[in-house]
Write a protein that binds this DNA or RNA. Structure first.
Lengths: 215, 215
DNA sequence: TAGATTGTTAATCGATTAACAATC
DNA sequence: TAGATTGTTAATCGATTAACAATC
């Protein structure tokens, strides 16, 4: 029981890793072979020691004097984030935001591919948005289990988000990317990652106020 | 010098406040007058003491036994977040994501209104997306200063983000909401709030992998 | 009054940063 | 070898949580 709870990665570390990747791709493109924590840190306005600590979690060890091998580090981070194999996902809610997300091909870089979308609006059902057909919501549950989908994206209005989440959980989805400004109630082993714009705008708007006051 | 650096709000607190608001609106709609920290906490799966600590920052004091007055708390949070007056914003990059954001009327709830968009693509310039005209990027700098715009939204590809940020800073913008997966270099007093989807997907994807391993 | 809930003060926890010996 | 950079161990910092007296 004591060593059961493996010390897991801090969330801040996970959030920083994509930034490191971005820098590493750039360096590789420019022909570099090795990289030091200082170089990465300067690029991203963080401290070198933090970069080293973060890298430690990926299992990569560097070498004194030369630092880390770029290609090695790239593979390690990609595999650590599970970005080296792509997981299929369903999206529910084909409104403005949902449509945009459907059209954002870049998610495959981040290990996720949205392969179908669902909506309750009969006007939208049957149409094709950015090459993806919109299905009626009733079909999701069945398709989820049949296709072994693990990731669900919620872009419906706040009032419907919990209902959709319940459906997803029923369908076997274990990771939900939620854009609705609601705290979803899900079983313990289900992962919910919230990206409500309200949170970002809260920070931005409050700080702007403080800034303006100061002048 | 000692008391100069006023202890500012923790970022996590700012991020939680919109959630409290959501709950408060709901309670008010249902006719409640007062609310205790426990009620809010249960709704959002957090601890009551955390809610009380967060509320303290808004300046509202509650009353033993009855708790907080809902309407009072709502106004206090809204004004604390500066959501009670709407700040105009410019958006640069009218691609998929940019278009979606232009169509998302809800931002006014969060104190921000995007009033114009810019793009380098001459195909897009002159078109109207969700009721907003797209202007050539060259015009932004001038319009920024003339209209006293303070908030800029960046939805251009990674490689152009820094260039756009520089332009915005030049134009007098002091708060940037950045969707590009790049660390922007800006003057010290400029606020940057990053919302790269890569960060969210890093957390989601890694945890999903861990979850699957566990079974 | 009795009981619920706040707000204060102190303890804990987790993440960041510092210092430095090990080493290529 | 000399110097740069890692990785380890310890110190600091900030945020969360606990305990409880004050109070409506």
């Amino acid at each position: 029981m004591t060593k059961n709870q493996v010390t897991s990665v801090p969330k801040p570390t996970l959030r920083r890793l994509p930034g490191y990747l971005q820098v590493l791709y750039e360096l590789k493109k420019n022909g570099s072979i090795d990289v030091s924590s200082t170089i990465i840190a300067n690029e991203l306005n963080v401290k070198p020691i933090q970069v080293r600590k973060d890298i430690e979690f990926t299992g990569i060890v560097g070498r004194p004097k030369t630092g880390y091998v770029i290609t090695e580090l790239i593979s390690a981070i990609e595999s650590f984030l599970n970005w080296d194999n792509i997981t299929d996902a369903f999206l529910v809610g084909a409104g403005h935001l949902g449509s945009a997300i459907l059209g954002y091909e870049n998610f495959t870089k981040y290990g996720v591919k949205i392969i179908a979308a669902f909506d309750v609006d009969s006007e939208k059902v049957g149409t094709v948005i950015h090459g993806k057909e919109i299905f009626p919501l009733e079909k999701m549950l069945d398709l989820c289990s049949r296709m072994h989908i693990h990731i669900g994206v919620i872009t419906v209005p706040a009032e419907n988000a919990q209902y959709v989440a319940d459906l997803m959980v029923q369908g076997g989805i274990t990771a939900i990317w939620n854009f609705a400004p609601v705290e979803l109630q899900v079983p313990e082993n289900t992962i919910v990652e919230n990206t409500p714009f309200s949170q970002s705008l809260a920070v931005l708007s409050h700080k702007l106020k403080e800034n303006i006051k100061r002048n």
